[in-house]
């Protein structure tokens, strides 16, 4: 990562990747722990945000705790030459929190579009995906050959990114 992060950036990333302290002056607290001026930490974080190295700063709720107990990875086998327009369309649907095109692994795996859908029950996720399918058929008739919903049944691990100090 050395070519994109200088030493100060890297120290700030390492110090904040586990989170910021919940105190009135969190950036000052980080700066003091690193022996830097608060203004330097704030300017570096702003620059990382501006260039997209930080997606956002804020809180991440536990989906289960706020009621989204069902999480379905909807996967779609769509014609390759229409995958991008369908993916772009899927990504704009309100129910979808992230949407990607990924490789197939035939014959084990024939799906090429992945769209994550969160809901308050599996039935709600199934309804949301059925609505997505209807909309897709209306906009791109016949392009989707099959779809499936892979519900999560267990979280074995969930941590953020960790880069070495």
């Amino acid at each position: 990562m050395n070519e994109v992060l200088d030493d100060i950036d890297r120290r700030i990333v390492v110090a904040t990747q586990g989170g910021l302290p919940v105190v009135a002056e969190p950036y000052r607290a980080v700066a003091e722990s690193l022996g830097l001026a608060p203004g330097v930490v704030m300017a570096r974080l702003q620059a990382l945000l501006d260039r997209g190295a930080i997606r956002r700063i804020g809180v991440v709720p536990n989906h289960y705790a706020i009621g989204y107990v069902a999480n379905g990875m909807s996967v779609w086998d769509v014609e390759d030459d229409r995958a991008d327009e369908i993916g772009a369309w899927l990504g704009t649907r309100e129910a979808v929190t992230h949407c990607y095109r990924r490789p197939r692994h035939r014959p084990m795996w024939n799906f090429n579009l992945f769209a994550m859908v969160h809901g308050r029950s599996r039935a709600e996720v199934a309804d949301l995906v059925a609505t997505l399918h209807e909309g897709m058929e209306a906009c791109f008739p016949g392009a989707c050959r099959t779809l499936a919903i892979l519900y999560s049944n267990r979280i074995y691990k969930k941590t953020g990114l960790r880069i070495a100090a």
């Binding site: 992060l5 990333v13 989170g19 910021l20 956002r56 804020g58 709720p61 990114l161």
Partner: peptide
Amino acid sequence: RKVLTRFGPLFQIERLGG
């Protein structure tokens, strides 16, 4: 209460070279 799992910056690892 673990309603929030995290507070802080969310890094985009590809933009950090990873």
